[in-house]
Design a protein around this nucleic acid. Sequence first.
DNA 1: AATAGATTTTGACATAAGTCAAAAATAACA
DNA 2: TGTTATTTTTGACTTATGTCAAAATCTATT
Lengths: 189, 189
Amino acid sequence: MEKPIIEFINYIRQYSTLSNEAENAIVALARNETLAKGSILNKEGKTCKRLYFLKSGTVRTYFYQDGKDITHWIYPKNNMVTSWYSYLSQTPSKDYIETTEISEVISLTYTQWQELYTTFPELERFGRLLIEEQMALLDDFYKGYYFLSAKEKYQLLIKAIPNITQIANLGHIASMLGISQETLSRARK
Amino acid sequence: MEKPIIEFINYIRQYSTLSNEAENAIVALARNETLAKGSILNKEGKTCKRLYFLKSGTVRTYFYQDGKDITHWIYPKNNMVTSWYSYLSQTPSKDYIETTEISEVISLTYTQWQELYTTFPELERFGRLLIEEQMALLDDFYKGYYFLSAKEKYQLLIKAIPNITQIANLGHIASMLGISQETLSRARK
DNA sequence: AATAGATTTTGACATAAGTCAAAAATAACA
DNA sequence: TGTTATTTTTGACTTATGTCAAAATCTATT
């Protein structure tokens, strides 16, 4: 029998060694889905209950401000995806999470993870290291960001997500950078 | 005998239960210092080896961009302080960390924490929950931040750190928000 | 290949915020 | 309590980026 979860297991192994028991527990709980382009994983006002591993495809998180669709972040495949604030604090989200192309995701719920953390210390380690990495990324990305010109912001993003132009359109990228699409278009000239 | 570490132990207890053994291990390793105003805890180019608990006082992290001093974040007492990217990845920092008034800090090194995480699962839990909280804070704060006017940015900061005007001057606050001091002054009008 | 739809670029103009400089207000110190 | 230093505010002018609108380019489908 196939094990469609294997990529996720390998992903976890990059952070922490896994006992057979822990692996089996994850395999037993994980939900594996193939989603059409434009599928919504979570929406504004709903608490994000799941942490997703994006096995293939692309996911975008966004929210509405003054009626405008503003991209929060774009995730290429092989990333953990969720609405971090909502998921971690288990409070209603301000974000939408959507697939921008056909995507496969593997997920467990917040509650399941809490139990796994308690039962398997190696999974709590995974949880810690995963968030540490996300935190370091965010901390580094936003540092001094405000004082950069439109062009410099774009260059910084390219460094963080090199294939961003292949997986997202200009409008989404621009709002992610906090600049207008026209300005971004000119910055790339 | 006094236990000057007790505030830190209580802080940890907010996140995770602590066995006597774990508590003793921390007491044995923790370094307790009183620092004059303007003390530098870490500087640009040096890897931040310690995670600090700010028992009293105020700490500011900042970096230089085009020769300008730009505030990254300001920490009131009872917070964990470090240069997150540098500490978590153990690579050279871009930040300076300084006290802006006389302050007491309690700290352990990165290496010490790694050992504690392995020995005491309850401390690994603390480590995970601490970073999760920081991550949620950052994620929430920066969201949609770019599209706010100077005035709205200031209001958002006041919500995040209500006593900010008591513990930092306008120039530091302005650069933290990514706006000029003059604009901030006018925004507060 | 032709049509329709979506995305990106270009143009003209408006505006929030930056910069430099000086004045005013506040705090620190003798 | 007067003097100096530091911090904050105000003024005049400049500029990067936003906005609205239209043209150009790319993509998909029949």
